[in-house]
């Protein structure tokens, strides 16, 4: 029973399919996996350019801040936008293979997660160059990244099944992500935000995570306990909602694909 719920038996499919999706993502392109860090670098460069030259943000090593935020954000954004359509796009998988349907969206998320680990791995020397302490914080970073995976996957699972019933969810997700980007402290710190907005910003489940990633990668310090607790809480809530609702709704959804 526990096996069934926790999908322990199916872990192999998760692993195989994640790798497959990752390969599918870059297959045929010349630069291949390099895109895993070229994209965030370019995006970080653009943001830095805009905010240092145009908006005159004056934080020390600002590009480093942007980079430490943009990497997890890109994972999050890709997971959600791909995941929302996972059941629809990969319906044939659900019809051909007998593994649990939850494997498909999770593997998509997994593929993006591998992508994230890869890009962080490549960028790591830069972070370490600025803060040697990052090296020691790596296990903590990994722990929070995994936690982040569950949060993102939880939200994504909810979107994945609901998009089958209501196709608007998919479109809403792409618009929502645009909006979400700006209200998440990806390229800014909470110190730049007026205090009266802080409460609302913390309603965003990404806020504690971004603060954690900024702490570790940008500042090279241990995350603050408050953010850690909050990230636990958010992950638990969103994962449970996503996972349980997915398992409950997927038999119904299968009939519609």
């Amino acid at each position: 029973m526990l096996n069934k719920i926790l999908l322990w038996k199916e872990r192999r499919y998760f692993w195989e399919l994640s790798r497959k999706f990752l390969k599918d993502k870059y297959v045929g392109s010349v630069l291949g996996l390099s895109w895993a860090f070229i994209t965030p670098l370019l995006l970080a460069g653009a943001i830095t350019l805009v905010f240092t030259r145009v908006a005159k943000v004056s934080l020390p090593h600002y590009p480093l801040l942007v980079l430490s935020g943009i990497l997890p954000w890109m994972y999050f954004s890709a997971s959600l936008s791909e995941g929302a359509y996972s059941i629809l796009n990969y319906s044939s998988f659900l019809k051909r293979f007998t593994f649990s349907p939850v494997i498909v969206p999770l593997s998509l998320s997994g593929a993006n997660f591998l992508n994230l680990l890869l890009s962080i791995g490549v960028m790591l020397p830069i972070f370490i160059l600025f803060n040697k302490s990052v090296l020691f914080l790596l296990p903590v970073l990994f722990f929070f990244l995994v936690l982040f995976f569950f949060l993102a996957s939880g939200i994504m699972l909810t979107l994945a099944w609901s998009n089958v019933f209501l196709r608007d969810i998919g479109h809403l997700t792409s618009v929502g992500l645009l909006f979400w980007f700006w209200i998440t402290p990806v390229f800014y710190t909470l110190s730049l935000v007026p205090e009266r907005f802080l409460f609302y910003l913390y309603l965003n489940p990404l806020t504690p995570f971004m603060r954690i990633f900024h702490s570790i990668l940008y500042r090279g310090v241990f995350p603050r306990p408050f953010d850690a607790y909050l990230s636990f809480l958010y992950t638990l809530v969103f994962w449970l909602i996503g996972y349980i609702s997915f398992l409950k709704k997927i038999p119904e959804a299968k009939k519609r694909i």
Partner: peptide, 16 residues
């Protein structure tokens, strides 16, 4: 062990 043959195209990578 059950194997079903339907949706033959699923899971293929057309570039590979």
């Amino acid at each position: 062990k059950v194997r079903i043959l339907s949706e033959l195209g699923a899971g293929f990578n057309i570039e590979a």
